[in-house]
Design a protein around this nucleic acid. Structure first.
Lengths: 153, 153
DNA sequence: GCGACTTGATTCAAATTCAGACCATCTAGA
DNA sequence: TCTAGATGGTCTGAATTTGAATCAAGTCGC
């Protein structure tokens, strides 16, 4: 009843460790930049980005949570913080009175505009520039598959 | 003074988003499995793994922190938890009386053995099996470069 | 052997995250 | 219509993480 057959092969292990390490490190860089340039945390930033990309710059809490891949209670906290900072505004939803709109304010948009160039620079320097165009495509492909497979459960 | 030149191209953006999403989701799976099978958090697990792989099953706190890529204070907390669970034992270091050895106990090794098969299964199912052998190699290569570049700063 | 500086680790308070309980709608079916 | 069950959000208390401050012990140049 050994599990020897399940032990990862060296190249598999290597890929896994690289994936893990790169994730940690890149996220750390991102976090640093966002904090420095705009006092935002990464999750906060992602919330603003999603709102920015949504119809009418707003989204329902639960949809937002799903998009940002964060628990409901965590999102409640994040949005409260963002609201306190004036970057987001909550509005009751008329058609479904349970749900709540989180809407990007002008200040929120401004904050986003402020940090975004630096954010892009970090993404570029940390990830994109280190890869060849082929690797970029393949990464998007492969990890896209990984993600979509996990989403569907 | 536009930053248009820095905006990510679609394929770059796609790679970045996939990287981010896959990271979130895979980590979530890992966390779930470890918690379920052995009551361990991911960082705790990584600590045990590193110790398991070290000379004499032990490491100095700061080396350990560097390996696991965690802040010193966070590691202090983690190790305290693991010690409380009986999985790790702290020992003063003789040659340098500032530093502290964290050593894997037999129970720690047992706990590790208990969760590891499940852990490998998750890594396999979530990542490895979704990729072709070529992708695995390339991922290890590319992300290995990403990680090592960020480490050196 | 002294003082300035680095290093290893912990501590503390504040911020964040987690899991589950909770409450108020909605929705569907009898 | 009523009711059981889903769904959307928030709240709560405990656990974890953060970042700065602290403390003890090493190192180096003089």
């Amino acid at each position: 009843m050994s599990d020897a057959g399940d032990v990862l092969e060296p190249r598999e292990l290597r890929a896994w460790m690289a994936f893990l390490a790169a994730g940690h490190l890149v996220d750390h860089e991102i976090e640093r930049q966002l904090k420095r340039d705009g006092g935002l945390s990464h999750p906060e930033f992602e919330v603003l980005v999603k709102l920015r990309g949504a119809e009418g710059n707003r989204m329902r809490m639960s949809d937002l949570a799903r998009e940002v891949m964060v628990s409901k209670s965590r999102l409640t906290y994040q949005v409260t913080q963002l609201e306190r900072a004036g970057f987001v505004k909550r509005t009751g939803c008329v058609s479904d009175r349970r749900s709540v709109w989180a809407e990007l304010t002008d200040e929120g948009a401004a904050a986003l505009a402020r940090v975004r160039p630096g954010h892009r620079r970090v993404v570029r320097e940390a990830l994109i520039e280190v890869l060849t165009p082929e690797e970029i495509d393949l990464l998007g492909d492969a990890l896209g598959r990984v993600a979509s497979r996990l989403r569907g459960r």
